[in-house]
Simulated scan of single mutants.
Amino acid sequence: MNRRDFIKTSALVSVAVALPLAGCTPAVKSERLNVDTMITHLESLKALPALEFDGPWPAYATFTHLAQSIEYAMVGFPEHKSDSFKTWVGGPAFWVFKQAGSMSHDTAEAIPGAPELDIEKTDPVAVNQSIDRLIVALRDFDEVTETKSHFAYGELAHEDYMLAQLMHINDHLDLLVAE
Rank of each mutant, 00 (worst) to 15 (best):
R3V: 14
R3W: 12
R3G: 00
R3Q: 15
D5Q: 13
D5L: 14
D5K: 11
F6N: 06
T9K: 03
T9G: 09
S10I: 01
S10N: 12
A11Y: 11
A11M: 14
L12T: 01
S14N: 09
V15T: 14
A16T: 04
A16G: 15
L19T: 15
L19V: 15
L21H: 00
T25I: 10
V28S: 12
S30P: 00
R32G: 00
N34I: 07
T40Y: 07
A47Y: 05
L48K: 15
A50Y: 06
E52I: 14
W57K: 09
P58K: 05
A59G: 09
A59E: 06
Y60I: 02
T62Q: 12
F63H: 12
T64N: 04
T64V: 13
H65Y: 10
H65S: 07
L66T: 09
I70K: 03
A73F: 05
M74V: 07
V75N: 06
V75T: 15
F77Q: 08
F77W: 13
P78W: 04
E79Y: 05
K86N: 06
T87C: 02
W88Q: 12
V89H: 08
G90W: 08
G90C: 02
P92F: 02
W95S: 08
V96T: 15
K98V: 10
S102T: 13
S102Y: 14
D106V: 06
A108Q: 03
E109W: 00
E109I: 01
I111A: 08
I111M: 07
I111K: 00
P112A: 06
E120S: 11
P124C: 03
D132M: 06
R133S: 13
L134D: 01
A137E: 05
R139V: 11
D140L: 12
D140K: 15
F141V: 01
D142V: 01
V144S: 01
V144R: 10
H150R: 01
F151V: 09
F151R: 02
A152P: 02
A152I: 05
Y153C: 02
Y153F: 14
G154I: 05
E159V: 14
E159P: 01
D160M: 04
Y161D: 12
Y161T: 03
M162D: 04
D171V: 01
H172S: 07
H172E: 06
V177T: 10
